[in-house]
Amino acid sequence: MAKKKNQMNEDSRKIAEKDFEPSYYNEESQFEKGLAETHEQVSDDYSEGTIDRKEGKED
């Protein structure tokens, strides 16, 4: 059981250490596709700005 838990921790570390790469848009793995989609959503929201800006209010 301890060996299986250590393997799970090792696998978790490998995933946690990954950063977004633009090539992930063309990959087949679920993890890389999900990371690419999440990156796109965050990028779109960041570019859009705040709720005030979305409603057309000015500072």
Rank of each mutant, 00 (worst) to 15 (best):
Arg13Val: 10
Arg53Pro: 00
Pro22Trp: 00
Arg13Trp: 09
Pro22Ser: 02
Pro22Met: 02
Gln30Pro: 05
Leu35Asp: 05
Tyr46Leu: 10
Glu10Lys: 13
Tyr25Ile: 05
Lys54Phe: 05
Asn26Leu: 12
Ser29Ile: 02
Asn6Ser: 11
Ser43Ile: 03
Asp44Phe: 04
Asn6Leu: 12
Ser12Asp: 13
Glu27Ser: 09
Ser47Ile: 04
Glu28Asp: 14
Ser29Lys: 06
Asn9Trp: 06
Lys18Trp: 06
Lys33Met: 12
Glu10Gly: 02
Lys4Gly: 00
Lys4Trp: 05
Glu27Gln: 11
Ile51Asn: 08
Lys5Trp: 07
Phe20Asp: 10
Ser43His: 05
Gly49Gln: 03
His39Met: 12
Tyr46Thr: 07
Met8Asp: 13
Glu55His: 04
Lys33Trp: 00
Gly56Thr: 02
Glu58Gln: 10
Ile15His: 02
Ile15Lys: 06
Arg13Glu: 15
Tyr25Glu: 12
Phe31Thr: 14
Lys57Ala: 00
Asp44Glu: 15
Glu28Ala: 08
Ser43Arg: 13
Tyr25Gln: 09
Ala16Asn: 15
Gln7Asn: 15
Glu32Thr: 08
Asp59Ser: 04
Phe20Tyr: 15
Glu21Asn: 14
Glu32Met: 03
Glu40Ile: 09
Ile51Phe: 07
Val42Ala: 13
Glu28Ile: 06
Lys33Asn: 15
Lys54Val: 03
Asp19Met: 07
Val42Gly: 02
Asp45Met: 11
Asp44Gly: 07
Gln30Trp: 05
Arg13His: 12
Asp52Pro: 00
Ser43Met: 07
Lys57Tyr: 02
Phe31Trp: 11
Phe20Met: 12
Ala16Lys: 13
Val42Asp: 10
Gly34Ala: 12
Val42Trp: 10
Asp44Lys: 14
Gln41His: 10
Phe20Gly: 07
Ile15Cys: 01
Gln41Thr: 09
Asn6Glu: 13
Tyr25Met: 08
Gly34Phe: 02
Ser23Asn: 05
Asp52Val: 01
Tyr25Asn: 06
Glu40Met: 14
Glu10Tyr: 11
Ser29His: 05
Ser47Val: 03
Glu55Ser: 04
Ile15Met: 07
Glu37Asn: 03
Asn6Val: 09
Asn6Asp: 11
Thr50Phe: 02
Val42Pro: 05
Lys14Ser: 11
Glu21Trp: 02
Pro22Ile: 02
Asp44Cys: 03
Gln41Met: 13
Ala16Asp: 15
Ile51Leu: 14
Glu55Arg: 03
Arg53Met: 13
Gln30Ile: 09
Asn9Leu: 11
Glu10Pro: 02
Glu32Trp: 00
Tyr24Ile: 00
Tyr25Gly: 04
